[in-house]
Design a binder for these strands. Structure first.
Length: 727
DNA sequence: CTAGGGTTAG
């Protein structure tokens, strides 16, 4: 057919070809067109043949342009050339646009139609409203609502359902409900949008009530509405209702539906019960990719990444989504090396990452904290066309900051043409975690003057910065403005920052007052912050109180046990010390083993505490002896107060000296060129002794040392640390 | 000619 079209004479002779022949010919050309150039040729013929008012042909032309054009622009220009398009043509254009990748263009066409006074009927409104929902354009949606009412279409059930959906996706659940209540006829689709709206607004109780109402109004539930309900059960953590729905579905023989299978697995996983998910999964045969991926994600989110890997390895065919689920699983389970390894393996299989997969990879590298690897990934991002994507750039800022390079984080930030609240939050947080409160606050004010509205996450970074710089009044003001100016309800994290802020400034009474007055029940974060402040300021009584509250909530919290036993030791209450120790032994509480990484020549070296597995272990321990000797000359004495196990003082001293960050540091001293910074990433918080040790080494050996611990960065230079000894 | 509303895994 392509041959036929291109061999047509440029000027068909109208006189010799009958009208309906030309009509049929063009119609069949358009129907069989397989590329945009065919459509363009047919378009040209259409214009020449005098059939350019024939609406079936024009409709066919518009539809072919939409389905064959790589961009929507050609289709839109075809549409624009139609002098006075019939309503059914413009309806189709609205429909195509509203489902396209550029739904906002629907609203532009709407405005044009309104300007031209062209008709929009009850078939056009659902498309317009769908477009408004997709871009969350509430104002436009309401205007369209008004217009549809003026024309009397707001009593059409399809228009009403679309209105309902528009309000629900724009977060206006009560406006949605108003439309719903006015409807005289509701079918399963109506109920399903309404229920999904409640689910999106996290009104899970209402979801279940509504579902009961639906059943009693004799509307038969279908597969789709069950998957909506199941997701509500999962998000609400309502396992018993979820199970009931499962039984219901089983009775109706619907468990063969792949959508429902994955909805069930996701529901069980969100309720924390992978046993039930696995139970169901075992009975499925064959198992499709989607449900297997749901299993992988379910296990990963519960921290059972090995179980996830087992499912993953058993999958017969693997697509991009399941690869990225597994990569994200490792990235979020603190196994960034496995995540990056898997990413390489995925590429070996010839699977190209998309933006979502790329985000997991960037985040894995952020967890890893390896700067050279970060630069490699940044290059990869640019080379594979992700360099302009906003979410990717936001993740790059975070990655560079967590790999210790504020400069590169800033570089990414300043090159970005578009910035959103996440961009600003990321750069503010970057400065905050490096202890540069001045720049963090400067950026915060810059952001506000640029009319970017901060959200709850932004304030965590800003308050964190204030706390670590001792800016008490500034912090108080900002906390107040968060509540009063921005109407953000503080969460535990915010109160935790405030407790930290006050605690650091030795305003422990005020910190306690805040804890007692806050409307939330204090959790592990809050008591942990208070306890840490007490540790720094040697506030034994309050420290014991906070540690005990913490242990009530988390009986296995290692830090609280350590603090309690240390305080008892300082008070020479040996019996209590013994009690705590026995309790810990009984409960099997022990500190997560310290682990530090250092990257040298693109290779990542990992050290566990007291690790002798490294191939240069001998040299490293010799270097350690040398460094310790050197430091002792200027007054260093190992400080064993953070050592947890019950040992005599000499043994404790050895334990402290074998902390993983000291081993990594010595390896860095051996291998890293003079003048280069030594960068270490640690899984736990750095202990007092290692902190003092790093400071001294930075002075004696004239080295800049950068240590990332569990919560922040320490930059050591000339015997001082950027954290000013509070962390 | 015959158009419109709701789903699944990262």
């Amino acid at each position: 057919m392509a041959q036929l079209i291109s061999s047509l004479p440029p000027q068909p002779k109208p006189a010799t070809i009958p009208h309906n022949h030309r009509y049929n010919h063009l119609l069949s050309s358009l129907s069989s067109a397989t590329s945009l150039s065919h459509v363009k040729q047919a378009h040209a013929q259409l214009l020449r043949s005098g059939l350019d008012r024939s609406s079936p042909l024009l409709l066919k032309l518009v539809l072919s342009s939409f389905s064959l054009s790589p961009s929507l622009d050609y289709a839109l220009s075809v549409f624009a050339q139609i002098p006075d398009p019939q309503t059914r043509i413009s309806n189709r254009v609205l429909r195509e646009l509203s489902r396209s990748s550029k739904p906002e263009k629907t609203l532009l066409v709407y405005k044009k139609l309104r300007r031209d006074g062209s008709g929009i009927d009850r078939f056009g409104f659902p498309a317009l409203l769908k477009a408004s929902s997709r871009v969350e354009a509430l104002i436009e949606g309401m205007e369209i609502h008004g217009f549809s009412a003026k024309l009397g279409f707001d009593s059409d059930p399809f228009v009403q359902t679309a209105l309902l959906g528009m309000y629900a996706t724009c977060g206006r659940i009560w406006d949605a409900r108003k439309v719903f209540d006015k409807m005289s006829h509701r079918d399963v689709v109506t109920w399903s949008i309404m229920i999904d709206g409640y689910c999106q607004s996290e009104l899970f109780e209402d979801v279940l009530v509504l579902f009961e109402e639906m059943k009693s109004s004799n509307v038969e539930p279908d597969e789709m509405i069950f998957s909506t309900i199941l997701s509500a059960c999962g998000r609400a953590g309502n396992l018993s209702y979820g199970k009931a729905i499962h039984e219901f579905i089983t009775e109706k023989n619907m468990v063969t539906d792949p959508y429902l299978q994955s909805a069930l697995v996701t529901m069980y996983a969100s309720c924390g019960s992978m046993e039930l998910a696995q139970n169901l999964y075992n009975r499925l045969s064959p198992k499709n990719v989607v449900v297997s991926t749901a299993m992988v994600t379910g296990y990963s989110k519960l921290g059972k990444v090995e179980a996830a890997r087992l499912i993953f390895d058993q999958m017969a065919e693997k697509d991009l989504v399941c690869w990225s689920a597994m990569i994200a699983g490792y990235a979020e389970s603190e196994q960034p090396r496995e995540a990056l390894e898997l990413f390489n393996e995925m590429q070996d299989w010839g699977i190209k990452p998309d933006q979502v997969a790329m985000l997991s990879v960037v985040s894995a590298c952020a967890h890893l904290g390896a700067l050279d690897r970060a630069k490699w990934i940044h290059n990869y991002v640019d080379d594979h066309g992700f360099g302009e994507a906003l979410p990717i750039n936001n993740a790059l800022i975070d990655m560079y900051a967590k790999c210790g390079s504020l400069a590169e984080a800033q570089e990414v930030f300043s090159r970005m043409r578009r910035k959103n609240v996440i961009t600003w939050t990321s750069i503010i947080n970057a400065f905050a975690m490096h202890g540069d409160a001045g720049n963090a606050l400067k950026l915060f004010y810059q952001m506000k003057s640029g009319n970017i509205v901060p959200n709850g996450v932004t304030f965590i970074g800003v308050l964190y910065a204030c706390s670590h710089a001792g800016l008490v009044d500034e912090g108080r003001k900002i906390f107040a403005s968060m509540v009063n100016e921005y109407g953000i309800t503080p969460k535990h994290e915010h109160y935790g920052c405030m407790v930290d802020l006050l605690g650091r400034a030795n305003l422990l009474g005020e910190a306690l007052e805040l804890v007692e007055q806050m409307p939330l029940a204090p959790n592990v974060i809050i008591w942990g912050s208070l306890m840490a402040a007490c540790r720094v300021h040697n506030e034994f009584e309050l420290g014991k109180f906070a540690a005990k509250r913490l242990l009530e909530l988390d009986p296995d919290h290692d830090g609280a046990h350590v603090l309690l036993s240390n305080i008892y030791a300082k008070e020479r209450r040996w019996e209590d010390v013994g009690k705590v120790r026995r309790l810990m032994k009984h409960r099997g509480v022990y500190k997560e083993r310290g682990c530090s990484r250092i990257e040298l020549n693109n290779e990542i070296h990992e050290f566990l505490m007291a690790d002798r597995n490294h191939k240069q272990a001998e040299e490293i321990y010799a270097k350690l002896d040398e460094v310790v000797g050197e430091l002792k000359l200027i007054g260093y004495a190992p400080n064993t107060c953070d050592v947890l196990v019950d040992l005599d003082e000499d043994e404790k001293m050895e334990m402290v000296l074998w902390h993983s960050e000291k081993l990594a540091l010595c390896y860095g001293l051996l291998r890293e060129e003079k003048g280069m910074s030594i960068r270490i990433v640690k899984n736990l918080r750095i202990c007092e002794d290692c902190h003092a040790f790093m400071k001294l080494v930075s002075k004696v050996y004239q080295r800049n040392i950068v240590v990332r611990d569990r919560t922040r960065f320490h930059h050591y230079k000339d015997g001082l640390c950027s954290c000013k000894d509070y962390w």
